[in-house]
């Protein structure tokens, strides 16, 4: 199952959320809060944890066809020593999350398969452009694919003629838009 999340670093660093104990208590477990507080840069660390939770939330929601909810606290997050991976536990399930962190953005994704990932910077692509990018990158032969969201707002590429359905995950924040899609043979 697939999920991704992007954060425009420029927009969040001024929020100083790591100093807001009430925000911290609503979103993070004791263990997570202690890791965030100990980090060299608690503010960036906080948003990294948030993004990891969001990516796992999207995958979990898709996996079990769950309606939308605001329950970041239920997604228990750990960082691996490498700093490039995290794991999230929720309702007895574990999601491995890949992280990318630089001065401009934080991007997290989870998938049981290898993915194609694309990040747009300072440009918000239209649905059609995303569709075209996916079809080209995955070398999809069918011209019938379109992007559809289900009642929970979860997007997939759908070919109505063959009922083929390819899950993908889309995220937008500030100057950045990102999507990931499992690399599969069409």
């Amino acid at each position: 199952m697939i999920g991704n999340d992007i954060i425009d670093v420029r927009l969040i660093l001024s929020e100083r959320k790591s100093e807001n104990q009430r925000f911290m208590a609503k979103v993070f477990t004791e263990e997570e809060r202690s890791m965030i507080e100990k980090a060299d840069d608690p503010e960036t660390s906080l948003w990294l944890f948030w993004s990891i939770k969001e990516a796992a939330y999207k995958a979990h929601q898709r996996n079990f066809d769950l309606s939308r909810t605001l329950n970041p606290f239920s997604f228990k997050c750990k960082l691996k020593a490498s700093g490039k991976e995290g794991t999230v536990e929720v309702d007895g399930f574990t999601y491995d999350v890949q992280l990318e962190l630089n001065s401009e953005y934080i991007h997290c994704h989870t998938s049981s398969q290898t993915v194609f990932k694309k990040i747009y910077r300072k440009y918000k692509p239209t649905k059609e452009e995303i569709l075209k990018e996916i079809c080209t990158s995955l070398d999809l032969k069918s011209r019938n694919f379109r992007i559809e969201k289900d009642s929970n707002g979860i997007p997939s590429l759908v070919d109505p003629h063959t009922t083929k359905k390819l899950p993908f995950s889309l995220s937008h924040h500030g100057n950045f838009t990102a999507f990931v899609i499992p690399l599969i043979n069409s």
Partner: peptide
């Protein structure tokens, strides 16, 4: 909050506070 007002989920926590 999300679909009609496009409040992001982190800000939704701010709304709650």
């Amino acid at each position: 909050f999300l679909n009609d007002l496009e409040i992001n989920s982190a800000n939704l926590v701010d709304v709650v506070l």
